[in-house]
């Protein structure tokens, strides 16, 4: 099971169909860096990156 990242919002998922966060359909296997957001309202990192939903994200996608 390979994990893929959404090219627009960088959300990591194992189902490359439709992104749960932004509805995008463009996924990539080439992503780097790993970020788990547990509480987007209190997290400074989530605020900085504009993340509004908890989940796993990549830092860079190519």
């Amino acid at each position: 099971m390979t994990e893929v990242a959404c090219k627009s919002c960088k959300y990591i998922t194992s189902e490359a169909t439709v992104c749960k966060i932004c509805g995008g359909r463009d996924f990539t296997k080439n992503w780097y860096g790993y970020l788990v957001i547990i509480d987007p309202e209190k997290s400074e990192i989530a605020k900085k990156l504009g993340i509004r939903y908890p989940g796993k994200y990549a830092l860079t996608v190519s």
Partner: peptide, 19 residues
């Protein structure tokens, strides 16, 4: 860690693993 944090109700907001 994110699973354990949720289970133990720890106030952990995010976990970052840069490459």
């Amino acid at each position: 860690m994110s699973m354990v944090a949720k289970k133990n109700k720890a106030n952990v907001y995010s976990i970052l693993a840069p490459k």
